[in-house]
Write a protein that binds this DNA or RNA. Structure first.
Lengths: 165, 165
DNA sequence: TAACATTGGTTTCAATTGTAACCACTTCGT
DNA sequence: ACGAAGTGGTTACAATTGAAACCAATGTTA
């Protein structure tokens, strides 16, 4: 005598999918919340979009990269990088110089102004990250690190081979 | 004698930010990879966008909801829901009926066709989730669950109060 | 060295998304 | 019962994003 009430079907119905428990969904909500909050902080204080900030974060550590190098490092696509770079250049946050060895290539670097901003943003970013991490124990942080690594690999595999089959 | 080479500055430089280790960044990359892969699967087979799929996922379990109810359940915004609902209605995946008690409100349900699709997608979604989860041990899955919960709460707090101060 | 393929990077155009304004209806306070 | 405020939902418009076409320079093959 089926005592489940308020449900759509009787026998034969598939197991339902509980969206609140569905990992892809949860990841998406979490990531959006975090990104939006931080984007707002960057945007308000330095007029930086997230892609632009990422470019700066990389250039801050690794000078003399080209746009193509950035593509490699950031998992962002060509176009996004190109736009971020243009915007940063317009704001005088980075310099572009032509590579004499290959005249298509542009060598990118933080400008003094850019480095200045970089040095002020890094602590801000770290502050946010710490604040997030503060809700976890040291143990959990390690676990999270390794779990993300594993999930990333699996998802990466999807992208490479054409998903399922 | 500073032996660090290939670095931008000497003393006084801030700790660098290693983007590959920065949680917000990693979450974003992971979430995008997963979402894109799955969106592709839904899109190819059923012409569903992610928002539309989410709406179906909820309506499959909870009949007779309004758009506003969906907003509550899905963490998507008004407009996204409205668009998803329109699209689903155009495809005859859902039915809209006017609520006699409140003539602004529309009561939404999966149509027979919609339920059919729902029942075919749920296993697909579960397949993907299982495949992802398969890279984790049972232990790790539990950990992840609780970690996400905690991070979500913290990020939620950011959104409510105006972030930092 | 002439053709062709590749690579670095930008531009263009269409689709997606977010924000704000908006209409229609309902509810509340008086 | 009337006007103000609130709610459900859509529309309009601007900003963001993605895909493909594109230009210029380099590399490769013959």
């Amino acid at each position: 005598m089926n005592s489940e009430k308020n449900r759509h079907e009787e026998a034969g119905a598939p197991d339902d999918l509980r969206l609140e428990k569905f990992l892809p969904y949860r990841l998406s909500v979490l990531s959006n919340r975090v990104s939006n909050a931080i984007a707002q902080a960057y945007g308000e204080r330095f007029e930086l979009t997230i892609p632009a900030w990422r470019v700066m974060a990389i250039l801050g550590r690794f000078p003399d990269l080209s746009a193509a190098d950035l593509v490699e490092q950031t998992a962002m696509d060509k176009v996004a990088i190109s736009r971020a770079v243009s915007a940063l250049f317009r704001n005088d946050y980075i310099t572009r110089s032509e590579d004499p060895a290959d005249r298509r290539r542009q060598v990118l670097n933080l400008s003094p102004l850019g480095r200045d901003v970089y040095e002020r943003i890094v602590p801000l970013a770290q502050y946010y990250e710490n604040d997030l991490m503060a809700s976890l124990s040291a143990e959990e942080r390690k676990q999270l690190d390794s779990i993300i690594e594993k999930l990333m690999d699996r998802a990466q595999a999807w992208a490479e081979r054409g998903l399922i089959d």
